[in-house]
Amino acid sequence: MQFKLIINGKTLKGEITIEAVDAAEAEKFFKQYANDNGIDGEWTYDDATKTFTVTE
């Protein structure tokens, strides 16, 4: 399945899409990606669109 991350950071904005087995695997990848890029904010997930959003 495809999952999307929308980044609304103070210094980094954009979107990335990955293939993952389930939402838990996608969330783990996205949170590591955000951590690696210094993004720390509020997370939301929309199951209907398979979209995670992080907002700083």
Score class of each variant (00 low, 15 high):
1 M>F: 06
1 M>E: 12
1 M>I: 09
1 M>S: 05
2 Q>A: 12
2 Q>K: 03
2 Q>W: 15
2 Q>H: 13
2 Q>G: 11
2 Q>S: 14
2 Q>T: 15
2 Q>Y: 04
3 F>S: 01
3 F>E: 00
3 F>I: 03
3 F>M: 02
3 F>Q: 00
3 F>N: 00
3 F>Y: 10
3 F>T: 01
4 K>C: 02
4 K>V: 10
4 K>D: 08
5 L>H: 00
5 L>A: 03
5 L>R: 00
5 L>Y: 01
5 L>E: 00
6 I>V: 13
6 I>T: 11
6 I>R: 07
6 I>K: 06
6 I>L: 14
6 I>A: 12
6 I>F: 10
6 I>G: 03
7 I>Y: 09
7 I>A: 06
7 I>V: 11
7 I>P: 01
7 I>C: 02
7 I>N: 01
8 N>V: 06
8 N>R: 13
8 N>F: 11
8 N>W: 09
8 N>M: 04
8 N>P: 03
9 G>Y: 05
9 G>V: 11
9 G>Q: 09
9 G>N: 10
9 G>S: 03
9 G>K: 13
9 G>R: 07
9 G>M: 05
9 G>W: 11
10 K>P: 03
10 K>Y: 13
10 K>F: 04
10 K>W: 03
11 T>P: 08
11 T>W: 05
11 T>Q: 06
12 L>E: 07
12 L>R: 09
12 L>C: 05
12 L>M: 08
12 L>Y: 08
12 L>Q: 12
12 L>G: 05
12 L>F: 11
12 L>S: 15
12 L>P: 03
13 K>V: 05
13 K>P: 15
13 K>T: 09
13 K>C: 03
13 K>H: 12
13 K>A: 14
13 K>W: 05
13 K>G: 10
13 K>I: 08
14 G>S: 09
14 G>Q: 13
14 G>R: 12
14 G>D: 05
14 G>K: 05
14 G>L: 04
15 E>V: 13
15 E>L: 10
15 E>C: 04
15 E>N: 13
15 E>R: 06
15 E>T: 12
15 E>M: 06
15 E>G: 04
16 I>K: 14
16 I>R: 09
16 I>L: 15
16 I>D: 02
17 T>K: 15
17 T>V: 13
17 T>P: 06
17 T>W: 07
17 T>F: 04
17 T>I: 09
17 T>Y: 10
18 I>K: 13
18 I>Y: 10
18 I>C: 03
19 E>W: 03
19 E>K: 03
19 E>T: 06
19 E>I: 06
20 A>G: 11
20 A>R: 04
20 A>P: 02
20 A>F: 07
20 A>T: 14
20 A>K: 03
20 A>H: 06
20 A>D: 09
20 A>I: 12
20 A>V: 12
21 V>I: 14
21 V>D: 09
21 V>L: 13
21 V>F: 08
21 V>E: 05
21 V>G: 09
21 V>Q: 10
21 V>S: 12
22 D>E: 13
22 D>P: 02
22 D>C: 03
22 D>I: 04
22 D>L: 04
22 D>Y: 12
22 D>F: 09
22 D>G: 12
23 A>Q: 13
23 A>Y: 04
23 A>F: 14
23 A>W: 14
23 A>T: 13
23 A>M: 13
23 A>R: 12
24 A>S: 05
24 A>H: 04
24 A>E: 06
25 E>V: 05
25 E>M: 08
25 E>H: 10
26 A>D: 00
26 A>N: 00
26 A>Q: 00
26 A>E: 00
27 E>R: 10
27 E>Q: 14
27 E>F: 14
27 E>T: 14
27 E>W: 04
27 E>G: 08
27 E>N: 08
27 E>P: 00
28 K>D: 04
28 K>Q: 03
28 K>F: 06
28 K>R: 11
28 K>N: 11
29 F>V: 14
29 F>S: 08
29 F>Q: 07
29 F>D: 03
29 F>M: 05
29 F>A: 07
30 F>P: 00
30 F>T: 01
30 F>G: 02
30 F>R: 00
30 F>Y: 12
30 F>L: 11
30 F>V: 10
30 F>D: 00
30 F>W: 02
30 F>Q: 00
31 K>M: 09
31 K>F: 07
31 K>H: 08
31 K>I: 06
31 K>Y: 11
31 K>P: 00
31 K>S: 09
31 K>Q: 12
32 Q>C: 02
32 Q>R: 11
32 Q>K: 11
32 Q>G: 06
32 Q>E: 05
32 Q>F: 08
33 Y>F: 05
33 Y>D: 01
33 Y>Q: 08
33 Y>V: 06
33 Y>C: 02
33 Y>E: 02
33 Y>N: 03
33 Y>W: 09
33 Y>M: 07
33 Y>G: 01
34 A>V: 06
34 A>P: 00
34 A>R: 01
34 A>D: 00
34 A>Q: 05
34 A>I: 05
35 N>L: 14
35 N>H: 09
35 N>T: 07
35 N>Q: 13
35 N>D: 12
35 N>A: 13
35 N>E: 14
36 D>M: 10
36 D>Q: 08
36 D>N: 12
36 D>W: 09
36 D>K: 12
36 D>V: 14
37 N>K: 14
37 N>C: 02
37 N>E: 07
37 N>S: 05
37 N>I: 14
37 N>V: 05
37 N>H: 08
38 G>T: 14
38 G>F: 15
38 G>M: 12
38 G>D: 05
38 G>A: 10
38 G>W: 13
38 G>V: 12
39 I>H: 14
39 I>P: 02
39 I>M: 07
39 I>Y: 15
40 D>M: 13
40 D>S: 06
40 D>P: 13
40 D>E: 05
40 D>W: 03
40 D>Y: 14
40 D>G: 08
40 D>C: 11
41 G>T: 01
41 G>V: 01
41 G>Y: 03
41 G>L: 03
41 G>F: 05
41 G>P: 01
41 G>W: 08
42 E>M: 15
42 E>H: 09
42 E>C: 08
42 E>V: 11
42 E>F: 06
43 W>N: 00
43 W>L: 08
43 W>T: 01
44 T>C: 03
44 T>N: 13
44 T>W: 08
44 T>Y: 12
44 T>L: 12
44 T>V: 13
45 Y>W: 14
45 Y>Q: 02
45 Y>P: 00
45 Y>I: 03
45 Y>E: 01
45 Y>F: 03
45 Y>A: 01
45 Y>T: 02
46 D>F: 03
46 D>Y: 10
46 D>P: 01
46 D>L: 13
46 D>T: 15
46 D>R: 04
47 D>H: 09
47 D>K: 09
47 D>C: 05
47 D>A: 11
47 D>V: 07
48 A>G: 12
48 A>M: 05
48 A>I: 15
48 A>W: 13
48 A>H: 12
48 A>N: 06
48 A>S: 14
49 T>N: 07
49 T>I: 10
49 T>C: 03
49 T>Q: 07
49 T>D: 12
49 T>H: 07
49 T>K: 05
50 K>S: 08
50 K>D: 08
50 K>E: 05
50 K>A: 06
50 K>H: 13
50 K>Q: 07
51 T>S: 07
51 T>K: 13
51 T>M: 12
51 T>N: 11
51 T>L: 14
51 T>D: 02
51 T>H: 12
51 T>Q: 09
52 F>Q: 00
52 F>T: 01
52 F>H: 04
52 F>A: 01
52 F>R: 00
52 F>M: 10
53 T>P: 00
53 T>M: 15
53 T>V: 09
53 T>L: 07
53 T>R: 13
53 T>K: 13
53 T>S: 14
54 V>R: 00
54 V>N: 01
54 V>S: 01
54 V>K: 00
54 V>A: 08
54 V>M: 13
54 V>L: 03
55 T>I: 04
55 T>C: 09
56 E>K: 09
56 E>R: 08
56 E>I: 11
56 E>F: 11
56 E>S: 10
56 E>P: 12
56 E>N: 10
